[in-house]
């Protein structure tokens, strides 16, 4: 235990991570031409704007609410990489007044699950801004987020000298079989996906990056019981006051320099990313993934997971908790107000 800690804190390790970050930045720079701009509205970005970055593919189902949710939270501009959608996503995005769109048809997996593309956008446009990096199926909430927008949160973080904000992914699911619910684009997904697992998350310190590594939740309970080490990682650092020298490592789970993902260390405020993965098109998406193999490093190991998802499973159990709002999450101890009273 202490040996692992000593290693994490050693100068050699810090230097290794420094080079790791440089390599990542070089990789991002090398792949910069993989994305081509389709709709450039970045001139609108004011110096104090809050920006949102995402890579998406065929998300017409989620996009309308996604944009509405983050607009309401106070995101001023969206910078989105469209990975070859064919369901009208690109056209829909191009119509939006506050969205700039890039297009690519390259491999999502080989671009570190989109982080290389988004990394280049963060590099160019994110510097000095509060930047939110999320997926289309992630909705950020934090204590009192209904009343307090991201401007108040980031102003408070600035005052405290903090440059990042952590959030844990919280998988939402419906009461019955996944595909038996009806959901129309633009609806609030927490109306149909209104259940979650409240107390089966576990954490450890990541031996290499030193971040808090949170696993657990419904996906582990149902799909990864026998292989807990492979269960999805749930800790994320989605909100960062960006500097062009920063780089996300794997999704937004880890970031370098690593003090940025040290957001979990003390009793500070933290949020949750409501994960709307299990909307009714999950079966279709999983079937597609079985063919495309773009979502995991070692895709063969996750085949059974996707196969189970195509069979319209039930994730709900009697102890599931019904989602009410952020105050409930604070009470349950899933997110925290910290000293942000």
């Amino acid at each position: 235990m202490t040996a692992a800690k000593d290693r994490l804190n050693s100068f050699g390790h810090a230097y290794r991570l420094r080079w790791k970050r440089r390599r990542l930045l070089f990789r991002i720079w090398r792949k910069r031409r993989q994305i081509a701009v389709r709709s450039d509205k970045t001139k609108q970005i004011s110096p104090d704007a809050i920006l949102a970055f995402a890579t998406i593919r065929n998300e017409m189902l989620r996009l309308p609410y996604f944009l509405a949710h983050y607009r309401k939270l106070g995101v001023d501009h969206f910078l989105i990489v469209d990975n070859d959608s064919d369901d009208g996503t690109a056209a829909y995005l191009a119509q939006q007044p506050d969205v700039s769109v890039w297009h690519t048809s390259r491999s999502y997996r080989l671009a570190r699950f989109g982080m290389d593309w988004v990394g280049w956008l963060l590099w160019q446009f994110g510097h000095g801004h509060w930047c939110l990096t999320v997926d289309a199926d992630e909705l950020l909430v934090y204590p009192q987020s209904a009343e307090r927008d991201l401007k108040s949160l980031t102003a408070w973080l600035d005052k405290r000298g903090r440059t990042s904000f952590g959030a844990m992914m919280l998988d939402l699911y419906p009461k019955g079989p996944l595909e038996d619910v009806t959901y129309a684009p633009g609806d609030d997904p927490t109306r149909v996906l209104n259940w979650f697992d409240r107390g089966n998350y576990r954490q450890q310190t990541h031996a290499y990056y030193g971040n808090q590594w949170i696993q657990g939740g419904v996906r582990e309970r149902v799909f990864f019981r026998d292989e807990p080490a492979r269960a999805p990682t749930l800790n994320k650092t989605p909100l960062v006051r960006w500097h062009w020298r920063y780089a996300y490592v794997s999704a937004t789970h880890q970031i370098l320099p690593r003090q940025l993902h040290d957001v979990f260390a003390e009793n500070t405020a933290s949020g949750a990313l409501l994960h709307t993965k299990f909307l009714p098109n999950i079966g279709q998406k999983s079937a597609e993934e079985l063919v495309r193999k773009q979502h995991f490093e070692n895709t063969a190991r996750y085949e059974s997971y996707h196969q189970q998802l195509t069979r319209n499973p039930v994730l709900w159990h009697e102890g599931s908790e019904e989602y009410v709002g952020t105050e409930q999450l604070v009470e349950l101890g899933l997110i925290s107000k910290g000293d942000w009273v």
């Binding site: 952590g166 959030a167 844990m168 998350y201 576990r202 954490q203 310190t205 808090q212 949170i214 800790n235 979990f264 260390a265 003390e266 009793n267 500070t268 405020a269 933290s270 101890g333 899933l334 997110i335 925290s336 910290g338």
Partner: peptide, 8 residues
């Protein structure tokens, strides 16, 4: 007794 993202 609570272990979570903000308390570890």
């Amino acid at each position: 007794g609570l272990y979570m993202q903000s308390r570890f």
